[in-house]
């Protein structure tokens, strides 16, 4: 909950600019972008996610470092599980092959 999960923005919902499809090591889910009002994110940007909300934009290098940190902390599985859990009814239908 307190460690942020890095994800890459794949697309912004055409009907809702606060909703983005993000990719976290192959798992794709929708997250909320409302908290990035001051620093709008676009597809291709990397963000740090807490409980389904993107909290800050970061560089790709920092995103990869954060993923490594999670792995070293033994938290990457929990992080993936968290991301997979986002969006109850969408679970299972937005995985990359």
């Amino acid at each position: 909950m307190c460690l942020a999960i890095p994800g890459k923005i794949i697309e912004i919902a055409p009907d809702n600019e606060s909703s983005a499809l993000i990719d976290v090591v192959g798992v794709r889910r929708r997250v909320d972008l409302s908290l990035l009002q001051d620093d709008r994110a676009v597809p291709g940007d990397w963000v740090l996610i807490h409980v389904g909300f993107a909290m800050s934009k970061i560089s790709e290098a920092d995103a990869l470092d954060q993923m490594r940190t999670l792995a070293m902390l033994g938290e990457s599985e929990a992080a993936i599980q968290e991301v997979q859990g986002y969006g109850l009814e969408e679970a299972g239908d937005k995985r990359t092959p």
Binding site: D32, V51, G52, F53, V83, G85, Y86, G87, L88, E89
Partner: peptide, 15 residues
């Protein structure tokens, strides 16, 4: 129920 995001609690309420 376990939720990973508060917004999923809203989804639970809707369903």
């Amino acid at each position: 129920r376990i939720v990973y995001s508060p917004s999923d609690a809203i989804k639970l309420a809707k369903t």
